[in-house]
Design a binder for these strands. Structure first.
Lengths: 196, 196, 196, 196
DNA sequence: AATGAATGAGTATTCATTCAT
DNA sequence: TATGAATGAATACTCATTCAT
């Protein structure tokens, strides 16, 4: 860890600012409809500067994916769980963490789902996240239930994807979290019916 | 029913050809990345002709939504069901019809999900389809099970959206339908666990 | 004079209708901004028909110039004058006829002046009209006044061009003719001061 | 007065160059027939640059009107006059200045008259110029003559508009100024007959 | 004579990218 | 590091013109 001069420090901050501005812009308008001018304006810098830090507009996309991952706080949520507590309690906590995480990373989620059909690398990334999300929850739940692995994987995948869907289409436009709470309660209950 | 002269007939066919070409193009490259040149080429006509039939590229989008609906064959599948048959049998048939329908309308589905985050009208259309899909299945299933309405609605919504998700991310790239068959079998089984 | 069949007759009428529609359209929007679609619509026919009667959009312009001349009613006005009447009376009548004529041929005037700077043939036409107008009035006035020919020509040219200018910029937008009457009275008075 | 860096200075020059190029082009071909490519070529820059400085081709038109005014040198001519000198002398000097001014601003004049019938803002501008031109000369002449104000206004308006007309149709194509000198001499003489 | 579908070159405008300062 | 002027290829859309019916 070499200490950074303030010049280097500021450069890193500018680069970071650009990545965040690009994420917000891509999320709002989609990649193709976002112009580099839009992004520069959103970041509060001038047009040309993007090309000082990135080779192209597309590279900003990869930089976003490098900078952010969806699974960090999910891993945290799982790590923080008390395996002795009832499964229902833990699942509720987990799904709450998932929805909270989706809200926090809303721009990233929206952008990824918006571009997934068009940009193979984004689709691959979405698949990776889903797969890893399934594996993480599987590792936690499997020891506690009796269900054929394949069936448990389907159950986990289904509940998680429908929750993402629910977030994208409904929850992210809701003003309070009340609806989500109820949705989670029912989903957990039904998930438990399947796995136990 | 006025009889069409062959001239009028051919004009209608050209218009239809343009709508289909636009759908394929939008589905493959997304709306913004599809050029009107692309679409004209795909339809086998010259650039300018698009504007003989449509006011703008965007209007092609609305024309696609006017021409196609996702729910037609779903309604057919439900209507064809024997209510005396076991629910499991009927649900399996229904989900098979759904997956088949998604395959047939692949371009429309892919385009709608690709644009839903960016174009409000498309998102509204997706929401409508989901809502109506849920209602159709609810009307069929509700009389045969004992479950609070709200919970049944969540169960139905979740199983259908996860199936759409599954289609978008996995099934549509699979060469045979074997995987889907197994996926449907498990999903039906788990859905029955919830509702009975 | 061969008698026309009704078919031939109708063809002539259609052609005439197109010329008039073109004149109105050119006058309103200018030549370049008028589309053949505009003209066809104004004439109440379909796009292609123009090319049955004319080789090009430009030919419609020449057809307009062929069909209409500005000087006809001016010649009439001059012919109808009583040479025994006082010059003031005759000049007043003449300028009234001129303004009336400009009103009647408003579209032609407006179009010609709008295009004169850009289309040499139109400018030539405008020059011709001015020259002939000057000559007509000169032939009438010259015998009645004592003024060097060159000076009389300038006086006549000036009074007529400023009247056209006045029409283009002011009179054609006025709802009643009151202003014009007063304007003519003063102009005649001042013209008489020059020539007598 | 902030000092401009050479960079800012050059940008201003480029913008100015574009306005002038647009004026020449509009004057020669008319607004509608002038392409942005034409203008860029005339200015010696590439197509896209126009849109770095202006929102649209139309905005170039307004920029031209902002940059240039017709009346500056007319005001100068009037200010420079010796009120003690005979009116005839002063009027001759004034009209010479007017014709000279029209020559210098030929492109602007030609463009304005070419577009006045089609573009209301241009017509309004032309009207303003005429009105102000009339008022300027009126203020100078009125104290020296005995004529009802309304009649003096008509006289001034007529002589000035016919002079503009003369310029547009004749003088601007003449190679030497001989004709104009004679034309001015006669016009002044006749104007004096009216006002004295 | 009349229709309107079809063509294709052309136009204003946009935008990712470069580069001199 | 940062600016923003400059480039030029690409794009949606227009329109005069042709032509089969």
């Amino acid at each position: 860890m070499k200490p950074k001069t303030s010049r280097q420090q500021q450069a890193l901050e500018t680069k970071s600012k650009l990545i965040d501005a690009a994420l917000r812009t891509f999320s709002r308008k989609g990649f193709s409809e976002s112009t580099t001018k839009d992004i520069a304006k959103e970041a509060g810098v001038t047009d040309g500067l993007i090309y000082h830090y990135f080779q192209s507009k597309e590279e900003l996309l990869w930089a976003i994916l490098d900078k952010y991952t969806l699974l960090h706080s999910i891993r945290q949520a799982l790590a923080a769980m008390d395996k002795q507590a009832p499964l229902e309690h833990n699942l509720t906590a987990y799904f709450q963490a998932l929805i909270r995480n989706l809200h926090e990373q809303q721009d990233l989620i929206v952008m990824c789902f918006g571009e997934a059909q068009r940009i193979p690398e984004i689709r691959a990334r979405v698949e990776d996240i889903i797969r890893e999300g399934v594996e993480l929850l599987y590792a936690f739940v499997a020891p506690q239930v009796h269900l054929a692995p394949q069936e448990l994987l389907v159950a986990i995948r289904n509940v998680q994807t429908s929750m993402v869907f629910y977030f994208l289409m409904t929850a992210r436009f809701a003003e309070d979290g009340t609806q989500s709470t109820e949705y989670i309660r029912i989903s957990v209950k039904q998930f438990l019916k399947i796995v136990t």
